[in-house]
Nucleic acid binder design. Structure first.
Lengths: 334, 334
DNA sequence: GTCTCACATTACATCGATGTAATAGGCGGA
DNA sequence: TCCGCCTATTACATCGATGTAATGTGAGAC
């Protein structure tokens, strides 16, 4: 059985297809009785508009794309959750893509986006800074999430540099001096890694603490697995630091696991802090001190920038910084 | 600057629009030289097909919907991750919707799906069993994930009853007799809750252990928060059980947090087990014993059922059961 | 040299909704 | 009674890609 179309509804209501369309869109006025007849016909035929047709005609699909490195990451999952929710409230559908930290795939996405199934794209890039958003190509509206050196698109971010500095200062407040960081990168790392490292170093300077290269624990991929491995290797060769600042909560959770296995008590033997304030951190053992920020705000701002950009291509790019705060929990409480 | 269309490509290549279409689709044969001219023209014009138009014409959009209760839940996030990945491999895009455990919203989704922007729907229902999939309405292909009493749609699931029974037996293996479960529901709960409770009770019967009503710790929402609250209330009024089987890993993580705060050692004072094998469980403190199953397999099977169903509407519904195994980690190891 | 036959290519209609411009209908004022 | 005007409604074209059926083109056979 075929689906009903405007034509069918029109026939049943004894009006023209365009009138049916007018009833749906509510821009062109329709008289009371006519409207009622049409609405009844729609109900009787169980009419559902064909969004492909509408999209073709209007040039907009009502769908936005959301591209994240890996949905299974708690942080990405929380961001996705809020974006889907906010988008839904505003009548948008969300198409999700994973980039797997692969610039190639971010390119593909752009193409997809240009195929008109997507009216705009919210992209959380990882490694790539420049590659994804190529100049000169007719791009759909794009909003970037996070720390990116990219200057060509709208962007919502948390000031990683300031946050890392504050967290380091907070860790030092109880007299801790040997503060290690987990998640630094060798060579060209992500913008976030670079900024967090710099924030940490800036705090050391403020504190008058020596910069100890050995306290920078590199970890390219920011997952519990890699963090656990990296921290394990570090502990095999170095004395236990007084505090450990992990560049993400996920890494901190991996770190807590390793510390516990080695019989190191947190926070008595070593304080641990994270970044992102993911839900798991609250229920970590012990609960995790972290850099917190409102992900719903990020979602809302990203969507705001995106919709504004749809209306007004070509204006100067906007950048929104979202506030953060240090949330102290058991993992650092003396 | 407007996007190029088949017409533009055709003009540039000196052929008809239909020939361009033939080159893209590869069904109607196109001679070598012509194909080359067309391909070059497409490249020069940076041509990207309009998927709305294609969707309108073909009646298929190349997009499938994925509806989950809450993307921020680690379990949902992992499932989503695998589905997006598998779908991508097969050339599908995935549109994500959250149902927030709200049957109303599951209904809306069906409507959305019928609006032809979605060729099929993978739905992970929670409370609703019957409501979403109404008979008689022209539905898009639907595959349900999880334990549902629903008999009208294809389905991929893990045998919760058997898994809960095995887990309970495993917990009893080290001589533990007072085994509590966390996550039971009062009244009409989710199908999963009912089956897991029954599996637990079946194991008690096998073990010859008494069924102790007080060891059923109710918890409607399966989150760490609610689990922590429920377990806290339980511990205030009851002696500490020898083992605690949480109906999800998320709840187990909340439970571990509470136990730790109360100074109860896991597994010495109480063994703890979960269900789902989410990544966080591996890095919980202590690492979490759980019911494990391959989520990629779930994703693959769900997509297989869905695509098969697209080709063949109307055949009998299929049900796929995915294997599980008990993974013992530190939270139960004596 | 004409006639098939096979195959590549084309013109045209179509998918469903909606903007545009023209039409129909109603009402008040002269 | 007729004109003019405002509003609700309509016919038609259009968005871009593609199926259908018809056309064109060449090779091969007689």
């Amino acid at each position: 059985m075929l689906r009903a179309t405007v034509k069918d509804v029109a026939r049943r209501a004894g009006v023209s297809p365009k009138t049916v369309s007018n009833v749906m869109n509510g821009i062109v006025p329709v008289s009371g009785p006519t409207r009622e007849r049409v609405e009844q016909a729609m109900a009787e035929l169980d009419y559902v508009p064909n969004l492909s047709a509408r999209g073709l005609r209007n040039g907009r699909s009502g769908v936005i794309g959301l591209a994240l490195p890996d949905l299974a990451t708690p942080f990405s999952a929380e961001v996705a959750h809020h974006i889907v929710e906010v988008a839904h409230q505003q009548g948008w559908s969300v198409q999700i893509e994973e980039t797997g930290s692969d610039p190639q795939r971010e390119q593909e996405l752009m193409t997809r986006a240009r195929s008109n199934l997507i009216d705009g794209l919210i992209l959380n890039p990882v490694v790539l800074d420049e590659s994804a958003v190529k100049v000169g190509v007719a791009l759909p509206p794009v909003v970037l999430l996070g720390e990116v050196s990219q200057q060509l698109a709208d962007r919502v971010f948390v000031d990683s540099f300031a946050a890392a500095r504050e967290m380091t200062l907070a860790l030092a407040r109880s007299g801790r001096r040997r503060i290690a960081v987990l998640g630094t990168t060798q060579g060209r790392g992500s913008a976030a890694a670079i900024q967090r490292t710099q924030g940490y170093e800036d705090a050391l300077k403020i504190l008058g603490l020596p910069r100890d290269e050995s306290l920078l624990i590199p970890c390219e991929k920011w997952t519990p697995e890699t963090a656990a491995t990296a921290l394990g290797a570090f502990l095999d060769k170095n004395p236990v630091p007084e505090a450990l600042f992990c560049f993400t909560d996920s890494m901190a959770i991996g770190a807590l696991s390793v510390l516990w296995k080695r019989g190191l008590r947190v926070p008595e033997d070593i304080a641990v802090a994270g970044f992102d304030d993911i839900a798991d951190g609250r229920y970590a053992v012990p609960s995790l001190t972290t850099v917190s920020f409102d992900k719903r705000t990020i979602a809302r701002e990203a969507l705001r920038l995106l919709t504004e950009r749809m209306g007004d291509r070509g204006s100067a790019q906007r950048v929104v910084s979202v506030d953060f705060s240090i949330v102290e929990r058991d993992s650092t409480r003396a």
